[in-house]
Nucleic acid binder design. Structure first.
Lengths: 194, 194
DNA sequence: TTCTTTTTGTACTACCCGGTAAAGAATATA
DNA sequence: TATATTCTTTACCGGGTAGTACAAAAAGAA
């Protein structure tokens, strides 16, 4: 059964690759960039990821999604006020360093870059963003149940507005990688939750 | 002085190239893609655009900006109600065909794709988006002068909110290339103008 | 016509890149 | 130790790409 032991951990190298993809995008990243970042050779890479760069990118998106979604759900469950949690979620953007602002949202990046290049990958990125939207919706519904959210807007519409704000911030934060400016912008956006 | 006559018009081929760049992005577009779309050969191309793909992309962004800005200003000047003009500007998105939705905003695309690849091009794209923001601002200020805009928010902040909505729509319209859905979303966003 | 200027078409070069193949290394098991 | 299994290393291949070089073509001017 078990032959030569693997020198690397799959999740670990996916996470290494994620950083490069996130920073440079899909097309601008060569497999050699990825190999260098992951610290493995071609042989190992194509053995572990037979689909090459494309499969790796899928895995990267999935890993990102797993981490983000599980964290969101956990924190939301722990939050007494789900609406305030959404607020803090957005406010968190305005606490991040410039390097992060410059990378934007990897899912939004994927949607923008791959719509007419690789529709399948684009569809997956879209799906992940829809999960974020679903999380917003769940928080909003809980807020409504608890009587915290008084807005008369349909929660589904509200969730979509939040998603669009998120998508916009993925671009705007690169134009203005300035936390004070972003904070002002975000606070104004959050008034739809009042 | 005058040698062999040019077979093509610069602005015309830039506009041809624009379509390809807009659809595929910068990195995914090869110079041969561009030559095919422009209908000229390598010799002519490198003579007219010594900077190659990069210079052409700059020109494309500039041409887009020229067209968009001049149209915006002209229509805004002609509009009796500048706030309603902004509304119509956004509503127009929800009247466009799927093919356009799939391409998003070329400036947003450039910002997303090139932030960490070619900072100079990214900066130019940012500048063009800031011109859009400035146009929003001008319209808002005129609306305030005319007493049409009653919002208590700082017009500059309002313009930035509109810009962020625009940036978001560049992504969201690809996730949901559905004009009815987009219309609902946009109408909800426009309530910040009430 | 002949010369000059500018554009065009094409051939060429040097390079990079994704992917494969094959041989060798490291382990468990018998 | 011998064998089977799995992973790693490295060399290689075919294809595509950006950019250059150069000769031919198309005009005006002398």
């Amino acid at each position: 059964m078990s032959g030569r032991p693997k020198i690397f951990d799959n999740e670990a190298v996916i996470s290494k690759a994620a950083e490069v993809f996130w920073r440079q995008g899909y097309e601008a990243t060569s497999t050699e960039d990825l190999l260098a970042a992951m610290g493995i050779g071609k042989g190992s890479f194509y053995l572990a990821f037979k689909g090459g760069k494309k499969e790796l990118y899928e895995k990267v998106l999935e890993q990102f999604d797993q981490a983000a979604v599980s964290r969101f759900r956990k924190e939301l469950d722990a939050a007494a006020d789900p609406i305030e949690y959404i607020r803090e979620f957005f406010r968190g953007i305005a606490r991040q360093p410039k390097k992060i602002h410059q990378k934007g949202c990897i899912f939004g990046n994927a949607v923008a870059e791959l719509s007419n290049i690789d529709p399948l990958l684009m569809k997956q990125a879209t799906h992940h963003l829809q999960e974020l939207e679903a999380n917003f919706l769940e928080a909003l519904q809980r807020g409504k149940q608890q009587g915290i959210l008084t807005s008369k807007l349909d929660p589904a519409l509200l969730a979509r507005l939040l998603l669009n704000n998120w998508n916009g911030l993925g671009i705007t934060r690169r134009m203005y990688p300035d936390n004070e400016l972003l904070s002002t912008l975000i606070e104004a956006q959050l008034r739809i939750l009042d």
